[in-house]
Design a protein around this nucleic acid. Sequence first.
DNA 1: TGTTATTTTTAGACTAATCTAAATTAAATA
DNA 2: TATTTAATTTAGATTAGTCTAAAAATAACA
Lengths: 222, 222
Amino acid sequence: MDTSFTEENYLKAIYHLSADESKQVNTNQIATVLNTKAASVTDMLKKLSGKNLINYERYQGVELTGLGKTIALKIIRKHRLWEYFLVEKLAFGWDEVHDLAEQLEHIQSTELTDRLDEFLGFPKYDPHGDPIPDQSGTIKCAEMKSIAVLKAGNAGIISGIKEHSSSFLQYLEKMDLKIGKKIAVEEIIPFDETVVLRTENGEKINVSKAAAKYILIQDEQL
Amino acid sequence: MDTSFTEENYLKAIYHLSADESKQVNTNQIATVLNTKAASVTDMLKKLSGKNLINYERYQGVELTGLGKTIALKIIRKHRLWEYFLVEKLAFGWDEVHDLAEQLEHIQSTELTDRLDEFLGFPKYDPHGDPIPDQSGTIKCAEMKSIAVLKAGNAGIISGIKEHSSSFLQYLEKMDLKIGKKIAVEEIIPFDETVVLRTENGEKINVSKAAAKYILIQDEQL
DNA sequence: TGTTATTTTTAGACTAATCTAAATTAAATA
DNA sequence: TATTTAATTTAGATTAGTCTAAAAATAACA
C-alpha cells in the first residue's frame, strides 16, 4: 500500500480526532485541524475510502479501517520517535520539535524507524509523555488522569498533556512542570480552584484550574 | 526563497552535472539523471529561471546562479550529514544510505541541520569520502586523484569514489576497500594494468584497471 | 411537523509537475 | 551550402490536491 504525504496527514488527523471522541469523525473537524476546506476533505475521503483505509458514507462521517489505523499508528510511531531524538540527542526544547517531527514522520523506511528506535533505547514515551507505538503498532496505554480531578493528598508523576499549543508548552516550561516530575496535590483553594502542587524537593507550584485540566498524571511509569 | 521538493532535486542535479564538467548543462543530461523527459525539464528550467536560480537561454543549456548554487550546496550538506548519521549512528551500510538521504535532505530547518552537524562532531567527509559543505556552503576541496594514475611506490588514503552504483559499492565492500584506509601501490602489472595495493597491515589487494579509475586517494585527511 | 440553519457534497476551475506528439532550432555531414 | 540528424521546445492533455460557489442532505427548533 502506497500512501502520499497528504493521505498520511489525513489518516493521522482522523486517528487523533477519533481517539479523543472514540466515534465517527466529521468532515468539518478534519478541515479545521488540517487547515483546509470541507470540500477538499470530501474529495480526499472518497479517495481514502477507495483505498479501503476508511469507512465512509456520505453525510455520516468516517472511521479508520484496520488497515488505516495501522498506517496511522506507523506515522505516529515515527513522529514520536523523531521527537524523542530531537529532544534527547539534539537538545531541542520540547516546544520546538513538533513542526520538525511533522516533516520527519513521512520518511519512508521501516528499517530506519526500527534502527532509530534501537538507537534511542526503545523509549516508551515521547517528550510530551505520549506513548510511542512499538513495531507492531501496539501502544502502552497507561492510565492517566487530569490533575483537575485530583483531591488534596493525591500524588503521581506528570506523564502527559492534553493541549499541545506552543503557548501552553511555554507556560509549562516557565512553571518548571516537566514530564516525569513527581508531584503531590497539597490543597485546592476553594475560591478559584487553584491547585497547589508540591514537588519532591519541596518546591511549591500554583496551577490555575484552566491549566490543571490539561496536565495528566499517572501512578508510575513502566 | 521557497523551493519545492522537485525544484531542489533539479538544482542538485544541475550542480552535480556542472561540477563534473564545469560548464553548461544540457536538457537531456538532466532528464537522464532525474529519470524524466526532456519536455518536463524544459518546463522546470523556465520556472527556475524565473526565480533567478539558474541562467537559462533556449537551446543553450543552463548554469546555476549564485543563489541557485547556495541552495544546491545546502541540500548537499544535508544529504551528506544524514548519510554520516545513518552510517555512524544507526549502523547502516554505506551502500544502503543513499535513498534514505535523498528523502532526509529535503527536511526544511537550518537549525536542525546545524544541530545534527554538531551532534555528529562536525564531520568533514561523508561515508563515501565526499566533502560536507559547512554552514556557509564552503567545501573543503582536498586534492584527490584516481589510483589509476599512480605509479608503483605511491601511497595515500582512500578518500572518495567517482562511481556510486550499489554494485560498485558492494565490490568495494568485498575487496575491503574502505574510505580512510591507508594504502600504497606495490606494482602495476603490465599485462592488464591491474593495480596491486598493500595496506597498513600487510594485506594485498588486486584492483582491476576498470575499478581503479573510480577510486580516489589523497595525501592526508584534515 | 414545517421551516430555518448548519453541514456536507457536487460542479467546475486552478496550480504544480508530469507526459506524448508535433514543431523548431542547432549541429553534423555530404 | 544544402540536407539530414539530433536536441530542444511548444502545444495540449493528465493527475493530485486544492479552492469557490452553489446545491443537497441533515439537524435544530419553533
